[in-house]
């Protein structure tokens, strides 16, 4: 298996200056991830699951440790990489799927979904066509494709968000509760798309409120509950 990620001694806490206080999130985490592998993060609320995903994406700045990512340009430590390199990797190799859509005023659903393709150089018409297909797959009604998602319901926004986040295949995909507020059909569409991406070699780390949704995809489980940071093989794990 080709190694995609090697995390070593990763530690994250938050300094709240106005309280003159430090809050620990997780301490000294180490694990690896290979191409096509799917790791489920589990742990109680506050165990640091989402914090870990955001630290890997560098929305959060780690305090110590390393995150070695095998990019198409060679190995790079995401904990220390320059902002401009991180921005480049986010456009090309590392995706982050949350349950929230960052909708922009006056931008249609199909334009939002097509945007990552356009930024990757796909011509406008082709990008829009692929975007419409993705919206259809996730069950967004055709009447809404040209509407502005700022006024959509939470579930519809989430479908637009998934269509956008998964439209360009990535080397590494970070999934932060992407099935929350989705109906059964959209959940099935999501699992299908993740299965396709996994088969194509995308490595994934995810947090799922209902891990049963992705049970068939899980290769390994990492429990972030303090004092229980352990890696478990898929076969005997109750998810």
């Amino acid at each position: 298996m080709t190694r995609v990620l090697e995390i070593s001694g990763l530690t994250k806490g938050f300094t709240l200056h106005h309280l003159n206080n430090q809050i620990a999130a997780f301490d000294d985490i180490s694990f690896t991830l290979d191409a096509g592998e799917f790791v489920l993060l589990k742990g109680a609320n506050g165990a640091g699951k989402s914090t870990l995903l955001r630290t890997l994406y560098r929305s959060y700045v780690p305090q110590s440790g390393s995150i070695t990512f095998q990019s198409s340009h060679g190995a790079i430590d995401l904990a220390r990489a320059a902002d401009v390199d991180i921005a480049h990797l986010r456009r090309t190799e590392i995706g982050f799927v949350t349950q929230f859509l960052l909708a922009r005023p006056r931008v249609s659903a199909e334009a939002i979904v097509a945007e990552p393709l356009r930024l990757a150089g796909v011509p406008q018409d082709d990008a829009l066509e692929q975007a419409r297909q993705a919206l259809a797959i996730f069950g967004v009604k055709q009447d809404l494709w040209r509407a502005y998602p700022t006024t959509f319901s939470g579930g519809e926004q989430q479908k637009v968000n998934l269509a956008r986040a998964l439209i360009v295949p990535q080397k590494l995909l970070l999934l932060d509760e992407p099935t929350a507020s989705l109906d059964a059909n959209a959940r099935a569409a999501l699992v299908n798309r993740l299965t396709e991406l996994k088969a194509a070699g995308t490595a994934m780390i995810g947090v799922f409120h209902h891990p049963g949704d992705v049970e068939k995809l899980i290769d390994r489980v990492i429990d972030l509950t303090p004092d229980m940071i352990a890696q478990e093989e898929r076969t005997d794990v109750a998810v």
Binding site: S64, H73, A81, A82, D83, D85, H88
Partner: peptide
């Protein structure tokens, strides 16, 4: 303590 960033390596 926060990690300091390296110089760009990918973006040339």
């Amino acid at each position: 303590m926060t990690l300091t960033l390296d110089a760009p390596r990918i973006v040339q």
